[in-house]
Amino acid sequence: MSVYDYEANTLRGEKESLSKHKGKVLLVVNTASKCGFTPQYKGLQEVYDKFKDRGFEVLGFPSNQFAGQEPGDSEDIAEFCEINYGVTFPMYEKINVKGSDAHPLFQYLSNEAPGVLGSKSVKWNFTKFLVDKEGRVLKRFSPQTTPEQIEKDIAKLLD
């Protein structure tokens, strides 16, 4: 299995296979518009802009599972991200990222890269998963880890 075996709906409601991103380094992030970490959208966009021409993608997956911090629908989310942070990286429909009804992609990511003390559950918004060009999950980063702090890890995978 790899991340390429999963599908998700874009913010426009179109089903998309993640195999579309084969051969690229990915940073998969669960996002929210009303979270203390929401300003990380800016850093995510900057890292995306810096590396996208070298085979890198940020994939954003909004979730409302943490204190209701993503209350809007797909249109609200798209507008918020574009207007406030100029987001151009792929964004997907709001999903669950933890629990028994978590999206299969996040079940896979969580199992492949456990968090602190082996915890599998995503604990908060802006948890990030780094995926190599073969679709293997390499590392989980906490919400407190900024996109800028992950740049070196991304650059190594692109070389």
Rank of each mutant, 00 (worst) to 15 (best):
D5Q: 15
Y6D: 05
Y6M: 11
T10D: 11
T10K: 03
E14A: 13
K15H: 01
E16V: 15
S17N: 12
L18F: 14
S19N: 11
K20N: 12
K22N: 09
G23K: 10
K24D: 10
L26F: 06
L26P: 02
L26W: 07
V28D: 00
V29D: 02
V29R: 09
V29Y: 02
N30E: 10
S33H: 05
K34V: 03
C35N: 14
G36N: 10
F37D: 05
F37R: 11
Q40A: 08
Q40S: 08
Y41V: 12
G43A: 08
G43D: 07
Q45F: 02
Q45I: 09
E46T: 14
V47Y: 01
K50T: 14
F51G: 06
F51M: 04
K52Q: 12
D53P: 00
G55I: 12
V58L: 00
G60V: 08
F61W: 09
P62F: 04
Q65P: 01
F66K: 12
A67V: 14
A67L: 14
Q69M: 08
G72F: 03
D73F: 00
S74A: 15
S74N: 15
E75Q: 13
E75A: 14
D76Y: 03
E79R: 10
E82N: 07
N84A: 03
V87C: 02
V87H: 03
F89R: 07
F89V: 08
E93A: 07
K94Y: 03
K94G: 07
N96M: 04
V97C: 05
G99C: 03
G99T: 08
A102M: 06
P104S: 11
L105I: 12
L105R: 12
L105E: 10
Q107E: 14
Y108S: 12
Y108Q: 13
Y108N: 11
L109Y: 12
S110N: 11
S110D: 08
S110G: 10
S110P: 02
E112D: 04
L117D: 13
L117V: 07
S121M: 13
V122Q: 06
V122M: 04
N125M: 10
K133T: 13
E134F: 00
R136C: 02
V137W: 02
L138N: 05
L138C: 04
R140M: 03
S142L: 13
S142N: 12
S142P: 00
T146L: 02
E148W: 02
E151Y: 02
K152G: 08
K152M: 02
D153Y: 03
A155F: 03
A155D: 15
A155H: 05
K156E: 13
L157M: 07
L157D: 04
D159C: 00
